[in-house]
Amino acid sequence: MKISRIMTITVLVADQERARSFYVDSLGFDVRTDVRMGENRWLEVVPPAAETSIVLHEPFPGTTAGSSQGVILESADIDADVSALRANGVRVEGPHDMPWGRQATFADPDGNGFVLSATSVRSG
C-alpha cells in the first residue's frame, strides 16, 4: 500500500454554522475550506499549522450528529489549553494524569467527544 497520511477526519454535526463557531471561536481552529456544492457544504477546519483537518459535515443517511468519539488532539501546554477552553465556555473534564501522560476530555455542541492529550501515543 502507498497510504501516506490521514488527510481529513469527518465529524457529523447538526448545524454547520454552530459547529464552525465552536471550532473557530472556542478551539482556535482555522477554516481551511468553506464551499457549497449544490445542497452540500464542505466545511473544513484545522488547528493552526496542522496537516490533518476536520470536515464538519451534516449527517449522511443512516448516521447521526454527535457520533464521533475519541479523536485525540495534541497539546503542548494542556493546562493553558484547558483554561482557555473553559474561558470559552467549553465543559472540560480533567486534565488527569494517565500512565502515558496527561489528558482532558470535552465535547462539541453535538456531543462529538475529543481527548486533549499532553503527549501523543506513537509506536515506532
Rank of each mutant, 00 (worst) to 15 (best):
residue 1 M to K: 01
residue 2 K to R: 08
residue 2 K to H: 00
residue 4 S to H: 00
residue 5 R to N: 00
residue 6 I to V: 09
residue 7 M to D: 11
residue 7 M to V: 07
residue 7 M to A: 14
residue 9 I to W: 00
residue 9 I to G: 13
residue 10 T to I: 10
residue 13 V to K: 09
residue 13 V to W: 01
residue 13 V to S: 13
residue 14 A to M: 01
residue 15 D to W: 00
residue 15 D to T: 05
residue 15 D to V: 01
residue 16 Q to K: 05
residue 16 Q to E: 10
residue 17 E to N: 11
residue 17 E to W: 01
residue 17 E to Q: 14
residue 17 E to P: 03
residue 18 R to T: 11
residue 19 A to M: 07
residue 20 R to S: 13
residue 21 S to W: 02
residue 23 Y to W: 01
residue 24 V to I: 13
residue 24 V to Q: 13
residue 25 D to A: 15
residue 26 S to P: 03
residue 28 G to W: 06
residue 29 F to I: 08
residue 30 D to N: 14
residue 31 V to Y: 00
residue 33 T to L: 10
residue 33 T to N: 06
residue 34 D to G: 12
residue 35 V to H: 04
residue 35 V to I: 09
residue 35 V to F: 06
residue 35 V to A: 13
residue 35 V to N: 11
residue 36 R to C: 06
residue 36 R to L: 04
residue 37 M to L: 13
residue 38 G to D: 11
residue 38 G to C: 07
residue 38 G to E: 08
residue 39 E to C: 05
residue 40 N to E: 14
residue 41 R to I: 13
residue 42 W to S: 11
residue 43 L to G: 10
residue 44 E to L: 11
residue 44 E to T: 10
residue 45 V to T: 14
residue 46 V to D: 06
residue 47 P to C: 08
residue 47 P to I: 05
residue 51 E to Q: 09
residue 51 E to H: 04
residue 51 E to S: 10
residue 52 T to G: 04
residue 52 T to V: 08
residue 53 S to D: 07
residue 54 I to F: 06
residue 56 L to R: 07
residue 56 L to G: 09
residue 58 E to P: 03
residue 59 P to G: 12
residue 59 P to M: 04
residue 60 F to S: 11
residue 60 F to Q: 08
residue 60 F to C: 01
residue 61 P to C: 04
residue 62 G to I: 04
residue 62 G to M: 12
residue 62 G to S: 12
residue 62 G to Q: 11
residue 63 T to P: 04
residue 63 T to L: 12
residue 64 T to A: 15
residue 64 T to Q: 15
residue 66 G to S: 12
residue 66 G to W: 05
residue 66 G to L: 12
residue 66 G to A: 14
residue 66 G to P: 14
residue 67 S to R: 14
residue 68 S to F: 03
residue 69 Q to N: 15
residue 71 V to E: 03
residue 71 V to A: 14
residue 73 L to F: 05
residue 73 L to V: 10
residue 75 S to V: 05
residue 75 S to N: 04
residue 76 A to L: 08
residue 76 A to E: 13
residue 77 D to S: 05
residue 77 D to Y: 02
residue 77 D to A: 06
residue 78 I to L: 09
residue 79 D to H: 12
residue 80 A to L: 02
residue 81 D to F: 01
residue 81 D to L: 09
residue 84 A to E: 09
residue 84 A to M: 15
residue 84 A to V: 04
residue 85 L to F: 10
residue 86 R to A: 06
residue 86 R to H: 07
residue 86 R to G: 10
residue 86 R to T: 07
residue 86 R to I: 05
residue 87 A to F: 00
residue 91 R to Y: 01
residue 92 V to P: 03
residue 92 V to F: 02
residue 93 E to L: 11
residue 94 G to H: 13
residue 94 G to C: 13
residue 100 W to K: 12
residue 101 G to M: 06
residue 102 R to C: 09
residue 102 R to S: 15
residue 102 R to F: 07
residue 102 R to A: 15
residue 103 Q to E: 14
residue 103 Q to M: 15
residue 104 A to C: 08
residue 104 A to K: 09
residue 105 T to N: 15
residue 108 D to M: 06
residue 109 P to M: 08
residue 109 P to E: 11
residue 110 D to M: 04
residue 110 D to N: 10
residue 111 G to P: 05
residue 111 G to H: 05
residue 113 G to E: 11
residue 116 L to Y: 03
residue 116 L to K: 04
residue 117 S to W: 02
residue 117 S to D: 09
residue 119 T to N: 11
residue 120 S to A: 11
residue 120 S to H: 02
residue 120 S to D: 06
residue 124 G to Y: 03
residue 124 G to E: 13
residue 124 G to I: 10
